[in-house]
Design a protein around this nucleic acid. Structure first.
Lengths: 358, 358
DNA sequence: CACTTTCGTTGGATCGATTCAATTTTTGCT
DNA sequence: AGCAAAAATTGAATCGATCCAACGAAAGTG
């Protein structure tokens, strides 16, 4: 019934206009892809036929099959799609990826789903030349799915233990160590750690046992870096509360409640992400605690928001944009050996850290 | 030379494993797409063959051609790709689009290029089921290119005059009018307007003539709304400076310089975007002018940043997320007539506006 | 035991283009 | 005009899958 309107579902193929123009489909194809090699008169005839029949140009679906290359790279996470536009770290990373893609003319396909089954299907059916995998929650599954596609892929921000997967990350141990060192140098001795997930789906204070079996090596490495430095100055690290969050506001606040409920409240907080650190800043302010005179806070990541927070956040800056660029490069020239890059981080001292009171 | 390593460029097709497993390609296909209809023994044999030969599952490229649907929608702009992750308005809009896509399981393809030729090619070859077109700079060209693909598409944030293109926008005249009304009610009589582009590529004070031939009807409508209200209270609108910017920091600051260089500096600024308004806030502060006691500022868009600026920004909020959702819906059920939605806007009064001094 | 269902499998047709070797037409030159 | 070289055109093969009508075998029925 809907077909009453002009009665056709646009089945206009290149072959149709070739017939209409009285040329072979080979020639018709040339009119669009290499117009210079077909005689002007013929070219115009074909163009006119295309115009008349409402032909929208060669369908990329067809071309794709022959050409093999999609000219787009997929960026995958196990978060909902909006993660790409809402998470500060993801946004900066995507900006880096964008730059590299713009430079090479590649497109970006966002591949993602919070739902597990949907995610698998989306990865299996993504039309891309390769994947950049954001390893936050569900990282290992994601890597597994990407690997199954047998396309080039690179894991981001993951201290993957599996040397066979290409990965781009930072030196988490060194970075965390620098953060802790900065605070111990200032004289702090009572610490608390706001940790990223060690494994999927749980939050709360973590035990050494849980750290040992951590799924996420990156989280473990940062903790290792923190604790290494703390024990160096003689702090009993078994007394340092480590609260695992889901890197969102709610679980971070819960962590802060727990941490500050204890007798010996810390004078310094080591947060494994700027996102958590920024939440902490807000929470401390609401609680009437001054930063940095009551509590110092040091983040990790170096997102732009850290520059303009109240007070501006001391943090370990990752070369996020550069990582994004490298990732794209790794996909596009993915012939060589699996590329594993470990980039340096940098301590950026701002106003959220200072000597402890007294 | 590179082919020494195992000497093959992965030409493993479904047909290959079918042959290896001793079944027809039809059956092999079924093993992956409808496993329940093939006998277990056969299924396992095929699966084993696939595993052994390193087959990564049915290639979506092939499936696509047959299926016809990509299951992804393209979002197009004439800006570089990073625009999606850096512009506040775009980010909120993308969040809305993401939500709708998550809900329906569709993917998102970012289609964009600052370079003209590249842009055309990218749109022509994008593997998508439809386009959502961000009409900022280069809007008309973009719409033209999208139209040529003969795919469903919807223009966002564009008061397109051409009734044949689906579009989702807000009532720009009413919104602008509300903004101006708010300020006239407060007692303001000396105004300046920071305008979005009327046409591509130029900035500076605009003449009525330039307004008349504006490419962007949305910009013109907002101006109409402002001026309608101003003349209603008896202001000589020919004296109101209207400075056209490129909606970036540089040209906005240039506009402010121009505006405040004049004898009778305005007591109120009407900015056609929050982005400009926020730049204005900063510029005025740096210049030593207090907002709102020296100058009131009212923006347009309602981006999240407006809530936390110093001072918080009075603005006309668009239902950005809702627009994103509607756009996706328009693409996905694109059978009906071209859908043109005009959504309402809302005046949000914050601290950046107040009565003029004296 | 013949006869109908049901189930699993087969292989050809199709999706919409590009490519390339072969062929035809045009051009250029004497 | 005659012939070689250059340019334009043709059409079959290919890309990698899915779909479906037809068919053979096994199971069920009188």
């Amino acid at each position: 019934m809907a077909s009453l309107t002009a009665g056709n579902r646009r089945p206009v193929r290149l072959a149709d206009i070739a017939k209409a123009a009285g040329v072979s489909h080979g020639t018709a194809s040339n009119v669009f892809s290499r117009p210079e090699i077909v005689r002007e008169e013929v070219r115009e005839r074909v163009r006119a036929a295309a115009e008349a029949m409402g032909y929208g140009g060669p369908d990329p679906k067809g071309r794709l099959l022959r050409a093999g290359k999609v000219n787009a790279i997929g960026v995958a996470t196990a978060e909902p799609l909006s993660y790409f536009f809402e998470d500060p770290f993801a946004r900066v990373m995507m900006a880096g990826i964008s730059q590299a893609c713009d430079a090479t003319g590649a497109g970006i396909s966002l591949v993602s789903a919070a739902n597990n089954e949907q995610l698998a299907w989306n990865i299996q059916s993504a039309l891309v030349d390769g994947f950049i995998v954001f390893c936050i929650e569900g990282g290992s599954r994601l890597v597994e799915l990407a690997r199954e596609r047998k396309l080039p892929f690179v894991a981001l921000d993951l201290a993957s233990e599996d040397g066979s997967v290409a990965a781009i990350g930072v030196d988490n141990i060194a970075g965390a160590s620098m953060a802790a060192r900065h605070l111990t140098d200032l004289g702090h001795r009572r610490f608390a750690v706001l940790a990223l997930p060690f494994a999927d789906g749980r939050t709360g204070l973590v035990s050494p046992e849980q750290v040992r079996v951590a799924t996420y090596a990156g989280t473990r490495d940062r903790l290792t870096g923190y604790l290494q430095e703390l024990s160096r100055v003689g702090i009993d690290i078994s007394k340092v509360p480590v609260y695992e969050t889901a890197n969102d506001a709610a679980s971070t606040k819960a962590g802060l409640e727990t941490i500050f409920a204890s007798e010996a409240a810390p004078t310094a907080i080591l947060a494994m992400s700027d996102r958590m650190a920024l939440v902490a800043l807000e929470w401390l302010h609401a609680r009437g605690l001054d930063v940095p005179s009551d509590v110092s806070v040091v983040g990790f990541d170096g997102v732009p928001e850290a520059k303009v927070s109240e007070p501006p956040l001391t943090t370990i800056a990752q070369p996020i944009v550069e990582m994004g660029r490298l990732a794209v490069k790794a996909i596009l020239d993915s012939d060589g050996p699996v590329s594993r890059h470990q980039l340096p981080v940098e301590l950026i001292v701002r106003a959220s850290s200072g000597p402890p009171r007294g």
